[in-house]
Computed example of a mutant assay.
Amino acid sequence: MPTTKAARRRAALAARQALGLADVAQRSELLQRQLFAHFGVAGWQWLHLFLPLVARHEPDTWLVARRVWAEQLPTRLAVPVVQPGGATLRHYELTPRTLLQPNRWGIDEPVPDPLTAPEVFPEQLDAVLVPLLYCDQRGHRVGYGGGFYDRFLAQCRPGTAFIGLNVLNEPPGPPIADVLPTDVPLTAYITPDGVWNFS
């Protein structure tokens, strides 16, 4: 039975907010382990990740960044910065030296700097960790509804891995009825308990 984005967004937000912070932390650790176990992270030159909106119980992707740095992998990290006007993203390198500042939603963003946070362009990326609230059986996702990531993912080169992360233990579900032509499907989806590949 098809489902709508609005219905799935409401249900997922409520389910995620019902989780305790300790539970989110534990599930985030499992997501990080799944990523490194099932994907060749060390073989990527550039990995793009979102930094978590803690108030909305998003996955703690700092665990991924810290593991990359702790293991001294050659993989370089990039994160988004919402641009003035709120409709587009630009991307900057994240290192242990990067100066961060919270944006209007409370998400940490790099302070652009040629030395500590140079700009990274979508066509450079090998993989993107994508925030989501729901994923269907075709790899279509439900986000917050702003379209930031669909516009961004459409700029990446063919073959870039788009990997959705969900702290909720939900396998891919019924098809989303109101998919738009501009929606970009995932290539893979990770929950604390499982990994699914769509292409």
Results as ranks from 00 to 15, higher is better:
Gln34Phe: 00
Trp69Gln: 09
Leu19Asp: 02
Pro84Gln: 08
Arg66Gln: 12
Leu99Gln: 13
Leu99Glu: 12
Phe121Asn: 03
Leu129Phe: 10
Thr88Ala: 15
Leu47Tyr: 07
Thr98Leu: 05
Glu119Cys: 11
Val64Phe: 10
Leu100Ile: 01
Trp105Met: 13
Gly147Ser: 09
Glu58Lys: 14
Arg33Ser: 10
Trp62Asn: 09
Arg151Leu: 00
Pro74Met: 01
Arg10Cys: 04
Arg97Gly: 02
Ala6Gln: 15
Glu109Trp: 13
Ala22Gly: 14
Thr61Asn: 14
Leu89Val: 04
Ala15Lys: 14
Arg9Gly: 04
Ile107Gly: 10
Leu63Val: 00
Val142Ser: 06
Arg66Tyr: 05
Trp46Val: 02
Pro110Gln: 05
Val111Asn: 09
Gly143Glu: 03
Leu89Asn: 14
Tyr92Glu: 00
Ala127Lys: 08
Asp126Tyr: 10
Glu58Tyr: 14
Gln101Asp: 01
Pro74Ile: 01
His57Trp: 05
Pro80Ser: 13
His91Lys: 11
Pro84Glu: 04
Leu125Phe: 08
Ala6Gly: 04
Trp105Cys: 02
Phe36Pro: 02
Thr116Val: 09
Leu63Gly: 08
Pro59His: 13
Thr75Trp: 09
Val128Ile: 08
Gly139Ala: 07
Arg9Lys: 13
Glu71Ser: 12
Pro102Asp: 01
Pro80Met: 01
Leu35Lys: 09
Gln17Ile: 00
Val82Thr: 10
Ala7Arg: 15
Leu21Cys: 03
Phe148Leu: 11
Ala55Cys: 01
Pro112Ser: 02
Gly106Tyr: 10
Arg104Asn: 01
Gly106Gln: 03
His140Phe: 15
Gln83Ser: 07
Gln137Asn: 06
Asp126Gly: 08
Trp105Tyr: 15
Asn103Ile: 00
Cys135Met: 01
Gln17Trp: 06
Gly143Met: 08
Leu35Met: 01
Leu100Ala: 03
Leu31Gly: 05
Pro96Ser: 10
Leu77Gln: 09
Gln124Arg: 10
Asp108Met: 13
Ala12Asp: 07
Val142Tyr: 06
Val68Gly: 06
Pro118Lys: 12
Asp126Glu: 08
Ala42Val: 10
Leu129Trp: 11
Leu19Asn: 07
Arg10Phe: 04
Pro59Ser: 09
Gly20Tyr: 03
Pro112Thr: 04
Trp69Leu: 08
Tyr92Gly: 04
Leu51Met: 08
Ala7Phe: 08
Pro59Met: 07
Pro80Lys: 12
Leu47Lys: 08
Thr61Trp: 12
Gly85Arg: 14
Gln83Pro: 02
Leu133Trp: 13
Arg16Pro: 02
Arg76Asp: 04
Phe39Lys: 05
Gly143His: 11
His140Asn: 14
Asp23Val: 15
Pro96Thr: 04
Thr116Arg: 15
Leu21Tyr: 05
